[in-house]
């Protein structure tokens, strides 16, 4: 509609007058449509060309490369984690082995000591038994001696008693038989 221009330019003034007929909306100035459409199509074609030839493949490549890098790094991290796990397992195994070995040695020592102890005990028992047997033998000998002596004493005493009572020496064989019979009873 009304122009800010003060009519210094004749052609521009004419253009302004043209706008007035288009209800003040340059959007409805149909004479400019072919121009706008032409430049729009050129612009779209240029942008499409740039995007499809340069920009989009490049960005897609960068994105897939990043994805690849991430995947690769993750795989590497997984691998390292697995290695650490293996190392830990090996360490655990070594520890368990050492522990078992120590246990085995302790058991062996214990068993050897037990065997020594058993051996010593057995020998001591045997010695004790031998000594006991010997002592018993000695006691039996002493006892037999004592019985024999008692028999002797009894016979002599009996003969002396008989001699003192009867005035006759007693028959040795009869006395012996009588004493033996008594002592058995």
């Amino acid at each position: 509609m009304a122009s800010t221009q003060t009519g210094t330019d004749q052609a521009h003034g004419a253009a302004e007058a043209g706008h007035a007929s288009a209800a003040g909306m340059p959007q409805l100035e149909f004479s400019t449509f072919p121009n706008q459409v032409f430049w729009l199509l050129v612009t779209l074609a240029v942008i499409y060309f740039i995007l499809s030839r340069v920009a989009l493949p490049r960005i897609a490549a960068v994105l897939s490369e990043r994805q690849g890098t991430i995947t690769h790094d993750l795989a590497a991290a997984e691998e390292l984690k697995r290695k650490a796990e293996d190392a830990r397992e090996a360490h655990d195994k070594a520890l368990a082995d050492a522990r078992a070995e120590a246990h085995r040695i302790v058991e062996g020592a214990k068993a050897a000591m037990q065997a020594d102890l058993d051996d010593a005990t057995a020998r001591a028992d045997a010695e004790i038994a031998a000594r006991v047997a010997e002592s018993e033998r000695a006691i039996a000998g002493i006892r037999a001696g004592a019985v024999e002596n008692a028999g002797l004493v009894a016979r002599e005493v009996t003969q002396e008693i008989i001699f003192a009572l009867t005035g006759h020496p007693a028959d040795g064989r009869t006395v012996s038989a009588a004493v033996n019979a008594r002592m058995k009873g």
Binding site: M1, S3, T4, D9, A15, H19, P26, N35, F38
Partner: peptide, 21 residues
């Protein structure tokens, strides 16, 4: 003049606006 900003003008000179202007 709120609609002046939408005016299509030739970049060079003040001639008519053709298809390739």
């Amino acid at each position: 003049h709120p609609m002046d900003q939408f005016e299509v003008r030739p970049l060079f000179g003040h001639g008519d606006i053709g298809v390739f202007t």
